[in-house]
Computed example of a mutant assay.
Amino acid sequence: MTQTDTAKSTDTPRAGFDWITFLSKWGTLVSLGLLIALFSFGRPEVFMTVRNMLNILNQVSILGMIAFGLTICLVVGLYDLSIGAMATFGGYFAARFLMEIGIDNGAVVVLVLLVVLVLAALIGMVNGALISYLGISAIVETLAMSFVVTGVILGVSGGRTVYATEIPKAFAIIGQGKIAGIPNPVLILLLLGLLLWVFLEHTQTGRNMYALGGNREASRLSGISFSRYALIAMAISGACAALGGLVAGANLGAGRPQGVGEVYLLNAFVAVFIGASTLKPGKFHILGTAVGVLLIGVINNGLSVMGVPTFWQYIVQGSILILALISASLNAVRRG
Rank of each mutant, 00 (worst) to 15 (best):
L195N: 08
R335G: 02
A94R: 07
S31A: 15
A67Y: 01
S304E: 12
A241C: 08
G336Q: 07
G255Y: 03
Y229N: 12
L70K: 11
L303Y: 05
A94G: 01
N208E: 14
N300F: 14
I83G: 06
A87V: 06
N58V: 06
L252S: 15
L38F: 13
G128F: 11
K283G: 00
F47H: 09
V76M: 01
S82I: 07
A172C: 02
G292P: 07
I179N: 05
A324M: 13
S132C: 11
F17Y: 11
I123E: 01
F284P: 03
S329M: 15
M86D: 05
L321Y: 07
T289V: 12
I179K: 00
F147Q: 13
A218H: 01
V186M: 10
T6L: 15
N105K: 07
G69P: 06
G64C: 05
S24Q: 10
I131K: 12
T88K: 13
N105D: 11
N331A: 11
F68D: 07
G175N: 10
A218L: 02
T88N: 05
A250F: 09
A67T: 03
T71P: 02
A144Q: 08
T205R: 04
A239P: 05
V116W: 08
K169D: 12
W19Q: 07
I153Y: 02
A15D: 04
H285D: 05
L303I: 04
S237P: 12
I174R: 03
A290D: 01
F171N: 13
I62D: 14
I136W: 03
E45S: 11
G90V: 01
V46A: 15
V333S: 08
D18M: 03
L200A: 06
I296S: 06
L294K: 06
A230W: 01
L252V: 14
L74F: 12
T71G: 03
A241L: 08
F284Q: 13
T161G: 11
G155P: 11
A290N: 04
V112L: 10
T71R: 03
A328C: 02
A94E: 00
A85T: 04
I36T: 04
V293N: 03
G159D: 11
L325I: 14
L321M: 09
G245P: 00
R14N: 15
I56R: 14
S329H: 15
